[in-house]
Amino acid sequence: MIRFEHIKKSFGEKVVLDDVSFDIPKGRVQFVIGMSGTGKSVLMKHLVGLLKPDSGDVWLDGENITRLTEREFYRVRKKCGMVFQHSTLFDSMTILENIAMPIRKHFALDSKAANARAMEALELVHLGKEAKRLPPELGAGVRKRAAIARALALKPDYLIYDEPTTALDPIAARRIDGLIREMSDKTGVTSLVVSHDVRSIFAISDSVAFLYRSKLQFLGTPAELKATTDPIVKQFINGLSQGPIT
């Protein structure tokens, strides 16, 4: 289980997170939504130690991970995978090598065994055919799948998706949605999805947290989200230009 407790974070003058607290139980597909620049990605980066809060605590499986050093965080990061917004594969390696490299590092396997396991991960995301290609040759949707495979190959308990559908065309976006749900159901990984794609939310989420002006505005199931009377949340999910959000 993940617990955020009174997280505050500013960059210079700009307050990005202000007293944000909520829990994420295991096994869920948890969405964190909100407009661009409301600190959704910032919150997720706290979980893997790419950023540290100004005040407040982050708990992971009952351990306070807020004040860990970079070295100690490597242990945490084996538990938490992350799929970057731009997939961020290593350009100089093939898709297979991209996935096999971290496997080799963490499981002390020789390259043959690592490649075999990487291939399994690729099959899991239905990408077996593209194993030998280089990332720049492939489309954004395929790269995203490879990035998911890379994160899953380390068998994490938690997987963070940073805006997984933002740069994709509508068809690829729905396929990635499906894949996120499928991975969660198949491997039991807890998925944290940062997004502002309203269609994804209703398609695959178990629970939704809505950040607005650096605070937690709403937390609940998609059904509750649909039924909400909060004018701010309503305006966001309906994508209206008129309303309380300016």
Partner: peptide, 18 residues
């Protein structure tokens, strides 16, 4: 530099590789 600005260095850190 390219790896840094395209977050590939952060990706390494997230994969728990120094």
């Amino acid at each position: 530099a390219t790896m840094t600005i395209t977050e590939q260095v952060d990706a390494l850190r997230v994969l728990a590789i120094d």
